[in-house]
């Protein structure tokens, strides 16, 4: 079984990449292109949440707040200062990351379940600020006419351009996060999820790793927010609410806590599903709630969780060649 999967894995990946590259050519419906762009944004969001929740084991219920901070930061910079989209993207990464740092320093010292409550409250506060600080955010009316990206004077604000942009961003994020989690740093993060006392006993200072993971996670959510603002060209506080945080968490849980591939698939599937099956759209949140329960009972590692591993994370072997073994998780 495992062997079979391994054999078809490569061709499958090639076909997948080709499909993604040619998607706008094959499927000309602008609606599906729109859905795919949204899926790309959600993939970045769920990848980033996976870093702190899936790999480091710290439940964060305020991810929509960082998404929102990035969106507002990006929008305000592009609208008020006429900053170029690409600079705004970097700035929103940094600004969201700084908020992550400020929240993380006190909150990450707490036990895991308290962190969930604190981040939940943070999300509420940020939402309230979006609504009430009208001088800056224009309140419930939101910010309109956010410009699209342009590069050397060429406007890139067509849907196809946005599609390829988010494809590149997602690929880059995936590539870098893959390096990060498969490193000594990544292993250290996972020891914190597994057992903090054991982690400390081998010289790992949990707060440091949690903080870095949290900053990267919130920064990436902010980056996704900036892209979102530019793409939709209009943002309002209603997008950045508790339900959005829950949706992102559902994507991570479905794909697998601690699996990057899982986050990609979870993000795509849970964005497409309510769009394709319009009838379930009203029951979306019920479905996400039930999904979390069912996954935790029957498949806590998610559908693409660490079910098979061949070598150590470094993928290095020093001594004599050994037969590779596959491990199936029970």
């Amino acid at each position: 079984m495992m062997q079979k999967i391994k054999k078809i894995k490569k061709p499958l990946a090639v076909i997948g990449i080709l499909f993604l590259l040619l998607f706008p050519v094959i499927i000309t419906s602008s609606y599906y292109l729109h859905v795919m762009i949204l899926a790309g944004i959600y993939v970045v969001l769920s990848l980033s949440l996976n870093l702190i929740t899936g790999y480091t084991g710290q439940l964060c219920l305020g991810h929509a707040a960082f998404f929102g901070i990035g969106a507002y930061a990006g929008a305000l910079l592009m609208v008020n200062v006429h900053m170029n989209f690409f600079f705004a993207l970097i700035c929103s990464f940094i600004i969201s990351g700084i908020f992550g740092l400020l929240l993380g320093i006190p909150a990450l010292r707490l036990r895991g379940d308290y962190l969930a409550i604190v981040t939940l409250g943070f999300g509420e506060i940020v939402h309230l600020v979006f609504v009430n600080w009208t001088e800056l955010t224009n309140g419930p009316m939101g910010i309109r006419s956010i410009p699209g990206p342009s590069l050397f004077g060429i406007e890139l604000d067509g849907n196809q351009e946005f599609y390829y942009l988010i494809l590149i961003i997602t690929a880059l994020v995936l590539f870098l996060l893959n390096r990060l989690v498969n490193s000594g740093f990544g292993m250290a993060m996972q020891t914190i999820k597994a057992d903090e006392i054991a982690a400390e006993s081998i010289g790992i200072y949990p707060v440091k790793y949690k903080l870095i993971a949290f900053i990267l996670s919130s920064g990436l959510a902010g980056l996704a927010g900036c892209f979102y603002a530019s793409y939709i060209s209009y943002i309002s506080p209603t997008t950045f609410v508790y339900n959005t945080s829950v949706t992102i968490l559902a994507m991570v849980v479905l794909g697998g806590l601690g699996s990057l591939t899982g986050s990609v698939i979870g993000g795509v599937v849970l964005t497409l599903l309510p769009e394709v099956l319009r009838s379930i759209s009203d029951y979306r949140m019920i479905f996400f709630g039930a999904l979390m329960i069912i996954m935790m009972i029957f498949k806590p590692e998610g559908f693409w969780g660490v079910s098979k591993r061949v070598k150590n994370i470094y993928k290095i072997k020093a001594g004599g060649a050994q037969n590779e073994r596959d491990y199936e998780s029970r």
Binding site: G57, D113, K193, V253, M285, F288, G289, I293, I297
Partner: peptide, 28 residues
């Protein structure tokens, strides 16, 4: 929603997520 996870010996995170799932389910 909690007992099966508890008896599996899963970590606290799994129960926490399940509890969150119950909350979202009930609200909606």
């Amino acid at each position: 929603c909690y007992r099966p996870i508890r008896l599996h010996g899963a970590d606290a995170l799994a129960i926490l997520i399940s509890a969150l799932g119950v909350s979202i389910f009930l609200e909606n």
